[in-house]
């Protein structure tokens, strides 16, 4: 029985190994942070579309938020001798070994959307600080630079949380009339954000002029709590990511604004870069895709 299993396994593995040379196609290994996240799903679709256009083949793995699993996936890509790897890192530190191993094996590796401590061959993404800056500047404009703001953090210690926090606080520092009266983590989660907002309505109530949520899920939770308390017309709510729920809410005039992170631009950019590197064409090592502020006026452009 064991021998039979080993035989089947060997057959399957040799099949995998041969496929590349058989077809002679460019093969790119992709390890994604988490395919149950809407943004990552959009990123994935953009990559597949671009890969089909360019005639390259992707092997896509879901790391399910585990940096450890991600490193294993990259090790498998290296063993398969893929032509390039696209890494959508789970964590700054813990995903770094994946980058180091690929570089050591001489396989180009491109980080997409977020960074690792170890330097990859190239990076495609957006500056997360910028998303928070756009959101906070919008709040400052709406409040004429005076008022009380509360902020909902993502998972404490994740790169996006740290950077959006920094971007928001740097921007707040430029508006002495804006005060951050409370900040708390709702762990990127809509239900937790709703409870947090309900609690803030109790403790701070009419003092709150604006809510900045570090992602749209939390912004939607805050919005629901404010609507149920009948306070929405007095409080500005802004999120980040432009998920479809949030875009619809912006269009309907419920959510004030969100910040669009260009999943398509990042996904296409990553595949383009990988192909350029494989074909030994000149490439940029840092490609930044800009964020865009979405309000009721331009929401239609982003809804599809």
């Amino acid at each position: 029985m064991k021998r039979l299993l080993a035989f089947i396994l060997a057959l399957a593995l040799s099949g995998c190994a041969q496929r590349k040379s058989d077809e002679g196609r460019v093969l790119i290994g992709v390890s994604l942070l988490n395919l149950s996240n809407e943004f990552i799903v959009m990123l994935h679709r953009a990559m597949e579309t671009r890969a089909a256009e360019l005639g390259v083949k992707l092997i896509v793995n879901d790391a399910q938020r585990s940096a450890d699993r991600q490193v294993q996936q990259v090790e498998t890509f290296i063993a398969q001798r893929v032509d390039a790897i696209i890494l959508n890192p789970c964590e700054v530190e813990a995903s770094s070994p994946a980058v180091e191993k690929a570089i050591a094996a001489g396989i180009p590796i491109i980080n997409v959307n977020s960074e690792t401590r170890a330097a990859p061959t190239a990076f495609v993404g957006s500056r997360d600080e910028e998303s928070a800056r756009l959101a906070m500047e919008y709040i400052a404009r709406r409040l004429d630079g005076r008022g009380n703001v509360v902020m909902m953090h993502g998972f404490m210690g994740q790169a996006a949380q740290i950077k959006r926090d920094r971007g928001a606080k740097d921007t707040l520092a430029k508006f002495p009339g804006l005060k951050l009266i409370a900040e708390q983590s709702a762990e990127w989660d809509r239900a937790k954000a709703m409870s947090l907002m309900e609690n803030w309505i109790q403790s701070l109530g009419a003092k709150i002029n604006a809510v900045f949520a570090q992602n749209d899920e939390m912004a939607m939770g805050a919005l629901l709590a404010l609507e149920q308390a009948g306070l929405k017309d007095k409080v500005i709510v802004v999120g980040v990511d432009a998920i479809s729920d949030a875009l619809q809410a912006v269009k309907a005039g419920r959510l004030d604004a969100t910040v669009f992170q260009d999943a398509r631009g990042q996904g296409q950019g990553a595949v383009d870069l990988a192909v350029k590197i494989i074909r030994k064409e000149p490439f940029e090592t840092q490609v930044y895709i800009p964020f865009q502020l979405v309000t009721r006026e331009n929401a239609d452009k982003y809804l599809n």
Binding site: H153, M156, A182, Q184, S185, S195, L196, N199, W200, S203
Partner: peptide
Amino acid sequence: DLLNVSSYYQ
């Protein structure tokens, strides 16, 4: 939450 205790300490 009412006391606005930091997330770390919560």
